[in-house]
């Protein structure tokens, strides 16, 4: 069993710009407003760098900034785990459109933005973060796999770690051929110390069904974005409750976690 303390949280969902806005909705005190995701504008990035980024990069950085601010830990001190199921599908669309033209007009910026670790690269530069950083995918299990990576890093190094999970809705051309229908991002700073927002323990992989959310609209969002598989955990954290949860993994497996 791996234990950690949740130090800070970040969130961006359709109609909800940050964790503070999400709190009453996740507690069931207010309905989820829905609508479109307003892509964050990360403050760490200088304007000239921000122009070179994509919505996916800004989404990842925006929720990461929120989590660091709440944790009160300098971003430069945090190792990072970036988890995204499908990567930057808007860049894929633009790149493949360009390659379908005779002149193959790919720009250098487009090309370096096409790597799965582009958000991690921009974050490291903006935050001057030189700690280890990884960028992963585990398809529908991306959030749970990211959490396992973050917790195993924390356990091995006894150092704080920033987990960011994010995916943007597929662009028009790819939407009929893939699964991500809504944009969603969340981030959490996890640390080995005792004082923080809540305790989190990882109980391991097991067979079972993922935990669901009481509000049907949250359930729809959970199923529309692999990063939103974090919602059962985020809702428990928002309510400040102790709970044992099952987060979606692959096939019939779930990742069991305990919060409180």
């Amino acid at each position: 069993m791996i234990q950690a303390t949740v130090m800070g949280l970040g969130l961006a969902a359709p109609g909800l710009d940050d964790w503070a806005q999400a709190l009453p909705c996740l507690r069931g005190e207010q309905p989820w407003p829905g609508g479109a995701l307003s892509v964050p504008s990360p403050t760490l990035l200088p304007a000239n760098e921000r122009r070179r980024t994509t919505p996916l990069i800004r989404l990842a950085m925006g929720v990461a900034e929120q989590a660091c601010a709440q944790a009160g830990i300098a971003p430069a001190e945090l190792a990072c785990v970036f988890a995204s199921a499908e990567g930057d599908t808007l860049i894929v669309e633009r790149l493949c459109e360009a390659l379908s033209l005779p002149e193959k007009p790919i720009s250098p910026t487009q090309f370096h933005n096409s790597v799965h670790n582009a958000p991690a690269g921009y974050w490291a530069i903006a935050a001057q973060a030189r700690q280890p950083s990884t960028s992963i995918s585990a398809g529908p299990a991306s959030f749970a796999a990211g959490l396992l990576e973050a917790l195993s890093y924390l356990q091995a190094e006894q150092a704080p770690v920033l987990l960011i999970a994010y995916d943007t809705a597929l662009p028009l051309s790819l939407a009929p051929h893939g699964d991500v229908q809504q944009s969603f991002g969340c981030a959490m700073v996890l640390a080995p110390q005792d004082e923080g927002l809540a305790q989190l323990a990882c109980l391991g992989l097991a067979s079972g069904k993922p935990s669901t959310l009481a509000q049907p609209e949250w359930e729809v969002l959970r199923r529309a974005n692999p990063a939103a598989e974090a919602l059962p955990l985020l809702a428990a954290l928002a309510r400040g409750e102790s709970a044992q949860l099952a987060l979606r993994y692959l096939d019939e497996a779930v990742l069991q976690v305990q919060v409180g």
Binding site: V115, T134, I136, A138, E149, L250, D251
Partner: peptide, 20 residues
Amino acid sequence: CGPVQLISTACSSSLKVFAA
């Protein structure tokens, strides 16, 4: 059916698999 990760950090990807 154990833990699975696809690491995609450009040209360091398949060295980082050992660390994970």
